[in-house]
């Protein structure tokens, strides 16, 4: 088991390295750098001015050297102007120039400086992740129990009317992406023209204080899309368990239907959905971006969109590390959890 985890962590590190390099490469293409220079300094810069601007900030060094700088294995770019003022990624206001460190990349715990928000990337990511954490927390609280109940109810009597209607409901929710259900929900529940006006159509105020009125719609929108998939998996797993030999034995012994479902079937039927729920996290990540944009909730997804549309290189790299770690960590947890839940499977 230990070896398995170490192996997986190695693959994870390699994947992060590859992915961040791809992001680095794509954001550092010349047209992107030109856009960055123009948004940062002046929209009407000439080509020569753009080159000077980029050169003075070290953007025009070879790609691998710059990637090494970001990683912290190559000394960082440092330029000292005539009046002795330094400019570079290691320079911090208030730190005398002699003490400026040579290496300051990810390995030194420095994730860089965001050009859009004018803040440390690690601060932004931490702050935004906390906000998104709340959203995720409520989504999970709503989504997982509902999905499991729907799935178990549908799978416990396969082919019944309950099964048919609940299955159709789950298919319908998987066919409704967040931007569709969100729009419909806002039109029904929040529109000032024709709607019911029960909830608010934006979640901006939820960043300070989460209330029922401002958080219901985003949570519902996200939970609905993920729910159908988990429910269908639970249904399939439950239906399979209900045909097993030991269920028939229990029936023949005279155990009531309730007893069979609750005591014999449920525990075995919930192994497969566990994996699915864990693997749902990466999906939620895409959902977060859409829902946060739609409801104007300034969390991680919103920051990702801001970073991407403004070519904020270091913030984008920070965001992609977080995203990749979430994806791979949930895969690892689902694999390990599966082994613990199902004693028939062993990892070698």
């Amino acid at each position: 088991m230990g070896k398995f985890i170490i192996n997986r962590c190695g693959i994870m590190a390699l994947t992060i390295l590859c992915l961040t390099f791809v992001v680095f490469f794509l954001t550092n293409l010349h047209p992107n750098l030109e856009k960055l220079a123009k948004t940062q300094a002046n929209m009407r810069m000439t080509d020569d001015q753009v080159v000077t601007w980029l050169e003075s900030r070290g953007y025009l060094q070879p790609l691998f050297i710059r990637y090494g700088e970001w990683l912290g294995v190559v000394p960082s770019f440092l330029q000292t102007s005539e009046d002795g003022r330094q400019r570079g990624r290691c320079v911090r206001p208030g730190v005398p120039s002699e003490q400026t460190s040579r290496y300051c990349g990810v390995l030194q715990g420095n994730f860089g400086f965001s050009t859009v928000f004018k803040e440390e990337v690690s601060d932004i990511v931490a702050k935004r992740l906390a906000l998104t954490g709340w959203l995720m927390f409520y989504v999970m609280i709503v989504m997982v129990p509902t999905a499991l109940v729907v799935g178990v109810l549908a799978g416990m009597r396969e082919g019944s009317k309950t099964d048919r209607s609940l299955s159709t409901f789950s298919i319908a929710t998987t066919a409704t992406p967040e931007y569709v259900s969100g729009v419909i929900f806002i039109a029904i529940f929040a529109s000032s023209a024709v709607g019911l006006k029960w909830f608010k159509g934006t979640a901006t105020s939820a960043m300070d204080e989460i209330t029922f009125a401002n958080f219901t719609l985003p949570v519902m929108t996200m939970a609905l899309y993920g729910m159908g998939y988990i429910a269908r998996m639970t249904r399939a797993s439950m239906a399979e368990v209900m045909t097993a030999q030991y269920i028939r034995t229990a029936r023949l012994k005279g155990v009531s239907f309730h007893g069979i479902v609750l005591k014999h079937a449920l525990r075995n039927a919930l192994i497969a959905p566990f994996t699915v729920i864990m693997l749902q996290f990466p999906w939620l990540l895409t959902g977060v971006v859409i829902v946060e944009t739609l409801f104007n909730y300034k969390g991680f997804g919103w920051a990702l969109v801001q970073a991407a549309s403004n070519n904020d290189i270091e913030l984008l790299l920070g965001c992609s590390i977080v995203a990749v770690v979430v994806v791979l960590l949930t895969q690892l947890i689902s694999d390990i959890g599966y082994v613990y839940l199902n004693p028939r499977i062993r990892v070698n």
């Binding site: 994947t15 992915l19 992001v23 794509l26 990702l304």
Partner: peptide
């Protein structure tokens, strides 16, 4: 590797 990428980020890039 491609699957570990968040789809939105890939599209934005």
């Amino acid at each position: 590797l491609v699957l570990a990428f968040p789809v939105i980020l890939l599209f934005y890039l």
